Every structure is written in structure tokens, then in C-alpha cells.
Amino acid sequence: MTLTIQNSDKTSGTLYLALFDFAHLHSPDLSWDDMRDIRKLQHIISENDEAVELSIGQLNSGSICIRVFLDLNQNQQLDRSSLGLPLEPVGFANNPSLAFGEPSPDEVCFELGPDDNQHSITLKQKKQHGKRNKDL
């Protein structure tokens, strides 16, 4: 499988990608901590990389989830706000909205068939809202 990661903000950092086996786990209450990863990759992204293409190799057909994040501060983890919202660029299979934070695994899993060779994920980062100037 080939995975294209869109980095439209052209932000540099270390990209962490994890594929998860979702077989036999279908549940809307499932959290990311409940998932068993089947493959992990790391890739350095420079600010010039608008898109990165990664070769995942052969995967068995079935239900899988993909989650990626761009580690901006090199601490090897996805930083989150006090509300649990991702503070670094993240992406998921099916490219869901991040309006309400990180989606559940159930929302981003898909059936990988024998001919599924191309998938694309767009990194998204919740925009930080500046504080309004109260000194008028």
C-alpha cells in the first residue's frame, strides 16, 4: 500500500504513522488506547515537503485504521491541550473533520481490500485563536 500524506501547511518535524487492526473490535466506545498497532513508521518531513509518499508494504485485507501526527517539538508524542485536543498536526484515514477533536477509531477505519493500493491523508491542525486586545 502507498500512503500519501498531505502537509499543506509545509511544517517540518517527524511524522509518526501507526496502522491499527480493527478486526473484531467494532465498537463506537472504543478508544485509541484499546487499539493494537500492526505497523509503525517514522519519517522526517521538511518545510519544503507539501506531500510525502510512504510505502507501507503488504497488509492483510480487513478493517484497519490509520493515524498520523507530525511531532513539532521532537518529544515523540502527540501533544494535547488540557481538553485532550491535538496541539500538533494530525491526520486519519478517511480525513474526518477535527472540529470536535480527535475522532474515534470507529470513525476512521476502513476495509482494506486486495486491490487497495493508494490512500491519502491530510495533516490538519486546529487553528489557535489569538487573544483579543482588551486595551481599547
Rank of each mutant, 00 (worst) to 15 (best):
L136A: 13
S82H: 15
L41E: 15
D106W: 06
D71N: 00
S81D: 06
D33K: 09
S82K: 14
E88N: 12
Q125R: 13
V108H: 02
S55E: 13
E88T: 14
K10Y: 12
G13D: 06
I121G: 02
D79A: 09
L19V: 09
D49P: 05
P96Q: 08
S31F: 13
N73Y: 09
D71L: 03
N7W: 06
L15F: 00
D79L: 02
L85D: 07
P103F: 00
H43F: 10
D79G: 05
R132H: 14
G130W: 12
R80M: 09
L3G: 02
L17C: 01
Q58P: 15
V108T: 14
N60M: 07
D29N: 04
L83I: 08
D116I: 11
I44L: 05
N75I: 02
D9I: 13
L83K: 09
T4H: 10
Q76K: 11
R39S: 06
L3H: 01
S31P: 00
K134R: 04
S8F: 14
F69H: 12
A23D: 12
D37M: 02
E88R: 07
A99Y: 08
E111L: 05
E47P: 08
L41P: 02
N73M: 04
G113W: 01
G113D: 10
L17E: 09
I56Q: 02
S27E: 14
N94L: 14
I44Y: 08
D49Q: 01
E88V: 15
V108S: 10
I121T: 02
G113N: 07
D9A: 05
L136M: 15
N48I: 02
L41M: 08
D29W: 10
L17V: 12
S120V: 11
L112N: 05
L85I: 06
T11N: 08
Q118R: 10
H24M: 15
Q74P: 05
H43Y: 04
S61L: 06
L85K: 10
L30Q: 08
T14D: 04
Q125F: 03
I64P: 10
R39P: 05
L72T: 13
T4M: 15
I121D: 01
L15A: 00
V68A: 12
S12Q: 13
M1S: 01
S63I: 07
E47T: 13
T11M: 11
F110T: 09
E102G: 00
L30R: 14
N117K: 09
I45D: 04
N60D: 00
E111D: 07
L112G: 10
R36D: 15
V90T: 15
C109V: 13
H26F: 05
L112A: 14
H26N: 12
N117R: 10
P96S: 08
Q77P: 07
V90N: 11
V90D: 03
K124F: 10
G130A: 12
E88Q: 13
S46I: 01
L25G: 14
S55M: 07
S27I: 09
F69L: 03
E47Q: 13
P105G: 03
F100K: 14
D9P: 02
K126R: 14
N73A: 08
P105W: 05
T4P: 04
Q118T: 09
P105N: 07
D116Q: 11
R67H: 06
N117G: 11
A23G: 03
H24L: 14
